[in-house]
Nucleic acid binder design. Structure first.
Lengths: 109, 109
DNA sequence: AATGTCTATCGTATTATTGCGATAATAAAA
DNA sequence: TTTTATTATCGCAATAATACGATAGACATT
């Protein structure tokens, strides 16, 4: 095994998990925080900010791009990465929906 | 390698990533959704709801317990799992903080 | 004490993730 | 055309995560 049984869960449950997985690494959190705060979104700037090798940063960017949170714009010889507002708002809504639930106080009593 | 370089990131970035990792599996999303919705929080009930083996469910519960999102209460011969409101509110605040940021529209322009 | 019920843990197989050096690819500039 | 600058991809090694059968542990009931 070692493979998630995605087919037995709902599409939404899988989507939430996939979005969470994209956030499940401190480097990707740092990337997102940087893109939210700074205008600069060139790959090379991120490589300087992050204490990781260029290949590793590029890989994290690819993952964020795959899930849709980022999109890259080629601006030779650079590539500018930006947050995709559509997916960002989707994630905001999805996590907002989960966390707006009240925790049942009657549980285990 | 294969090991995350946690020491080069901030404590908060690592905490966000760890909380996200706890949500990064559809089974754990399903567990949380069930505990938010139903009063029943006995392990055995979760095993029935989830199309996974008992050992696998127990493992997912352990991960959620380790991060602090859940706590288990022994109620022999059962174990009742509940959402830990403190950590739940921490997660809500942390994700809320990230998503309240406006996406810069001037990026890549 | 023996049994039954429920949950945790162990062991194992498989796949995924992380990290990085080396190299390829792209496109402007010299 | 050659060089330079920037980013993506490949290949590898090591660790992490997923899943589950088997088994152990905890505890009430008989």
């Amino acid at each position: 095994m070692g493979v998630t049984k995605t087919q037995v869960f709902t599409e939404k449950q899988n989507r939430i998990a996939d979005l969470a997985k994209a956030l499940a690494h401190p480097a990707r959190i740092a990337i997102i925080q940087h893109l939210l705060k700074e205008k600069s979104c060139v790959c090379g700037d991120l490589v300087e900010v992050l204490p990781l090798a260029q290949a590793t940063v590029s890989q994290h960017l690819k993952e964020l791009k795959n899930i849709g949170i980022l999109h890259g714009e080629i601006n030779p010889p650079r590539v500018c990465y930006c947050i995709n507002e559509t997916v960002w708002l989707e994630a905001k809504a999805i996590f907002g929906e989960i966390f707006e639930s009240e925790v049942a106080v009657t549980c285990c009593k």
